[in-house]
Simulated assay, not measured.
Amino acid sequence: MGRAKKVVLAYSGGVDTSVCIPYLKQEWGVESVITLAADLGQGDELGPIQKKALDAGAEESLVADATQSFIEDYAFPAIQANALYENRYPLSTALARPLIAKLLVEAAERYDADAVAHGCTGKGNDQVRFDVSITALNPSLKVLAPAREWGMSREETIAYGERYGIPSPVKKSSPYSIDTNLLGRSIEAGPLEDPWNEPLEEVYALTAAIAKTPNEPEYVEIGFEKGLPTALNGKTLAPVELVRQLNQTAGRHGVGRIDMIENRLVGIKSREIYEAPALIALIAAHRDLESLTLTADVSHYKRGIEESYSQLVYNGLWYSPLKQALDAFIGQTQQRVTGVVRMKFFKGIAAPVGRKSEFSLYASDLATYGSEDAFDHKAAEGFIYVWGLPTRVWSQKLRE
């Protein structure tokens, strides 16, 4: 079933993507498979993964160090957008997909491949994110998804791989499906498929159980410049290091756990567990700083934009015209979102408890109830009359 001669395959080192290598060659007639593993700060040693791909029959095995781009070009813009899908999920996994798609397309163009491939099944969101992003970046490339079509069970997939020298997992695999990068972890499947089951503590790795968190709060000052995180406790940090440090601090206090029923793009509900300590804290701090520096109308209007932005990213439309338009709007709103937010981490809560900015719109002489009050109270009566006039007229007509 020849569909392409040379293919660049998104490779994780797992059973499915490993089996994709011989499957593409044996069943679909692909002559050459080049694998690409993306280092997104997940902490894994990618050397063994690189060798595993070659052992499975890959002509070449690439590793792309994309951690810096992941944080600067994908995570930080999402923080500026306060991106929370369904007002809860900070898109820690979803944000990686357009970047991986970009890496695949770049590799395909560099090696003159006529197709790219991934190991996604037909039930998840990632297949949509990869397919649409790849098509947006290079419409001439074919996109192959063997695991979506081969119809093999887990056991059959393992057996198929063994026929071509791919060793089966040496130990009983975890019942969970886990995806990890620098922004956090997503955990699903196994006992979590019953939404009544409380997640066991074993599913968490980045966040401490509340019972084991410190009994004293910890305060961290997060500095922003034009909506981008730049400093912790007054110390300027590179984006990757800032996220690493904040992950440790917030995670130590149990911040960043999310347990939710999520509406997938393909139409099914899924029970998802997420850990995203730094990302949750940064969005909370950024949103708080916006409340100090944006006018009321911009702040209120931006909330709707944020929801649209989150849906676009979740639904795989990072490289879409609407996303570009929203980027322009959000970028304009961030010009004066500069300042410092003091966050209090305690028993799973990341709470803004202080904020300051040279662009603050908070006027103490107008807000105070003390003797320094400069607000013209007499002006309120006329304002209220005009403001309430439509309601007054409506009420009068209702009684006629």
Score class of each variant (00 low, 15 high):
Arg244Asn: 14
Val7Thr: 10
Glu372Ser: 10
Val33Leu: 11
Ser270Tyr: 02
Phe224Trp: 08
Ala209Ser: 15
Gln68Trp: 11
Val266Trp: 01
Gln334Ser: 05
Ala351Pro: 00
Glu109Pro: 06
Arg244Cys: 10
Asp179Gln: 15
Cys120Glu: 09
Pro98Asn: 07
Ile258His: 01
Asp376Trp: 06
Cys20Lys: 07
Arg392Ala: 14
Arg185His: 12
Lys51Val: 14
Leu228Ala: 13
Gly124Met: 12
Ala278His: 01
Lys212His: 15
Gln26Lys: 06
Ser168Phe: 12
Met343Ala: 04
Lys5Gln: 13
Leu206Ser: 05
Glu59Tyr: 02
Leu322Phe: 03
Phe345Thr: 00
Leu317Glu: 13
Leu137Phe: 05
Leu46Cys: 06
Gln334Ala: 11
Gln324Ala: 08
Ile210Gly: 08
Gly331Cys: 03
Glu156Asn: 11
Ala108Pro: 02
Asp126Lys: 11
Phe329Trp: 10
Ala107Trp: 00
Gly165Lys: 03
Asn315Pro: 01
Glu27Ala: 06
Ile79Leu: 05
Ala278Val: 03
Thr135Gln: 15
Leu389Ala: 14
Gln311Trp: 01
Ser177Phe: 15
Asn82Leu: 07
Leu200Asp: 15
Leu312Tyr: 06
Thr391Gly: 13
Arg97Pro: 04
Gln332Thr: 06
Ile268His: 12
Asn315Thr: 04
Asp288Leu: 01
Ile49Cys: 06
Val8Asp: 10
Ala83Val: 01
Gly254Gln: 09
Val353Gln: 00
Arg271Tyr: 07
Lys172Ala: 10
Glu262Pro: 00
Thr391Phe: 04
Arg399Gln: 11
Ser291Cys: 07
Arg342Gln: 07
Gly304Ala: 03
Gly151Met: 15
Thr295Ala: 04
Val393Ile: 13
His377Gly: 09
Lys269Leu: 12
Arg271Pro: 02
Thr213Ser: 06
Pro321Ser: 01
Ala328Ser: 09
Thr207Ser: 09
Met1Tyr: 09
Ser186Arg: 13
Thr368Gly: 02
Arg88Pro: 03
Asn197Ser: 12
Asp179Pro: 04
Leu103Asp: 03
Gly29Ala: 07
Asn197Tyr: 11
Val105Arg: 03
Met1Ile: 13
Leu137Tyr: 05
Val63Phe: 02
Leu366Tyr: 08
Cys120Ser: 15
Pro277Tyr: 02
Leu141His: 11
Ala159Phe: 14
Lys212Asn: 15
Trp196Ala: 15
Asp373Pro: 00
Thr207Gln: 03
Gln26Pro: 05
Leu326Ile: 04
Tyr111Asp: 12
Glu59Met: 09
Ile178Gly: 08
Phe383Asn: 02
Tyr219Glu: 14
Leu282Cys: 03
Tyr164Arg: 03
Val386Ser: 11
Ser92Val: 12
Val203Trp: 02
Asp179His: 15
Thr157Arg: 03
Pro217Phe: 11
Asp373Lys: 08
Pro239Lys: 01
Tyr385Gly: 08
Pro191Lys: 12
Leu183Gly: 11
Tyr204Trp: 14
Arg252Ile: 12
Ser395Arg: 13
Ala250Glu: 01
Glu60Lys: 13
Arg163Glu: 08
Tyr111Thr: 12
Thr295His: 06
Arg148Asp: 06
Asp131Leu: 11
Leu103Val: 10
Arg257Asp: 01
Ala281Phe: 00
Ala96Val: 02
Ile349Glu: 11
Ala363Lys: 14
Leu279Asp: 00
Glu198His: 13
His300Thr: 04
